[in-house]
Design a protein around this nucleic acid. Structure first.
Lengths: 260, 260
DNA sequence: CAGTGGTCTAGACCACTGG
DNA sequence: CAGTGGTCTAGACCACTGC
């Protein structure tokens, strides 16, 4: 088969530690191969990947094994299954899942009721990474990064002020106009224009008091505490690709989280 | 078989809406049957449920079908699989998963480093539910509820002030001593003493300023904003069983969330 | 109607646990 | 060593989609 079941790699030179037998089931290997194709861009976001039967033939394994591999990819939101149609590369561009990473909800609970967010780009410039930004993005201090500042308003009310930083090499040429004119989520723009797919993210949340400038930009009444949301977004292979710092108003909205 | 594949329930009286064919795969029915046994307490938290082969025999289906049912239960954290040993009813009592619903982390990132939380019960009394509390717990205004107030301290520093409310009928006899003396998570006490297993929860998070009393209880420096975390915890069948309102200090800790 | 993902089965074998 | 969950296969059939 294309994917071989490796025997425990009979290391002649003994490993000093972590001598895990490293047994990896076949479907995990298949998953890895599909992942490689996803990373390499063999299929673009929104496109269908080959059918389970085709993949089974390509990798010389049974359909059930391919199925289990795709099951995991679907569970990680890397692909989306649609019965009768096929399996599709996940994208942030779909109507259905816009705001995939935004957990702020209106207190009414109905995000659609408040209409689409209006975005105001305040700033989009190329700067040198501070030590802190560089650490988050796994760059070196002083490396070029794109820095963006914007305000999101819901129902005409400024609700979120956010800054984010992107690796300068990958996002060379990003402009404020581009972001302002683009219809759809910013992460969809990243997919289309820069080939970067955000796959997962980690958020650290705190309660903070805004400084004067921040309060002014959000047109806040004085002394209103805000939610500080620091998000690190990753593309494939756990490579960090965006650091975002948001300030959320929570007098009319709340951050919603489901635990299980 | 014990579990039958139902034909579309040829309703003679036509349903006005939602005329879904209601096709439910066999493994979903098996899952439902296992769920019933879990609810009924046929197996207690921490105990092993019957092996896949036994369940397959009991329900007259193949092992693969039982397997898929258990897969979903495991994905929902209702059971835990352990290779070579069996499948076990999930519990909040295990060392490994204590703090299952607590997303507050020390900024160091290592929750174990700060040692166990110390709990101080300030209050535990039987009261009548306010309209708001009653709505959350799906009771009637004025119904009896247990109300608890406590402080959690990490490394000697008071970090969380929380109030929670429990249905008075189910939690009759809960005392402050009981909670103070119990070793382990409060949710484990609920399992052992009241037979209530919290299965999932929803949290709404805001940034707030504490009032004077709250600030005093947490020994806070003045004007420090706090995270307000309102949690509704559910037992089986989406029955709400606890409403909790926490105030978290976020100068040394942060609320951590993983998105995908 | 053909093609897709979704379900179900039966059987073989593997990896892990504990006595 | 027996018993458990975990993997893999091959084949049949079902439900959904679009032409």
């Amino acid at each position: 088969m294309a994917a071989q079941q490796m025997p425990p790699p009979a290391e002649s030179a003994p490993l000093p530690e972590a001598a895990t037998p490293a047994f990896s089931p076949l479907y995990q290997q298949i998953k890895g191969l599909i992942l490689q194709s996803l990373e390499a861009g063999e299929w673009k976001p929104g496109e269908a990947i080959p059918s389970e039967m085709e993949l089974a033939a390509r990798f010389r394994v049974s359909q059930g094994t391919v199925r289990k591999a795709i099951d995991e990819l679907a569970a990680e939101n890397l692909v989306v299954r649609r019965q009768g149609k096929g399996t599709f590369v996940a994208t942030h561009a779909e109507h259905h899942v816009r705001y995939r990473f935004l957990k702020l909800m209106p207190d009414s609970g109905d995000r659609d009721a408040e209409g689409p967010a209006s975005r105001t780009i305040l700033e989009c410039k190329r700067v040198r990474a501070s030590a802190e930004i560089a650490r988050g993005l796994q760059l070196r201090t002083g490396d070029a990064v794109m820095q963006v500042r914007r305000i999101l308003a819901f129902g005409g009310v400024a609700t979120i002020l956010e800054d984010f930083w992107l690796p300068g090499n990958t996002f060379k040429g990003l402009t404020a106009e581009q972001m302002a004119n683009f219809q759809g989520p910013t992460y969809a723009l990243f997919e289309l224009e820069f080939g970067v797919r955000m796959v997962r993210a980690e958020e650290k949340i705190r309660a903070v008091m805004p400084d004067e400038q921040q309060a002014q930009l959000l047109q806040l009444p004085p002394h209103m505490p805000l939610l500080s949301v620091e998000r690190l977004s990753y593309t494939y292979n756990d490579v960090p690709m965006e650091l975002r710092r948001g300030l959320y108003r929570t007098d009319t909205h709340h951050y919603r989280n489901d635990l299980s």
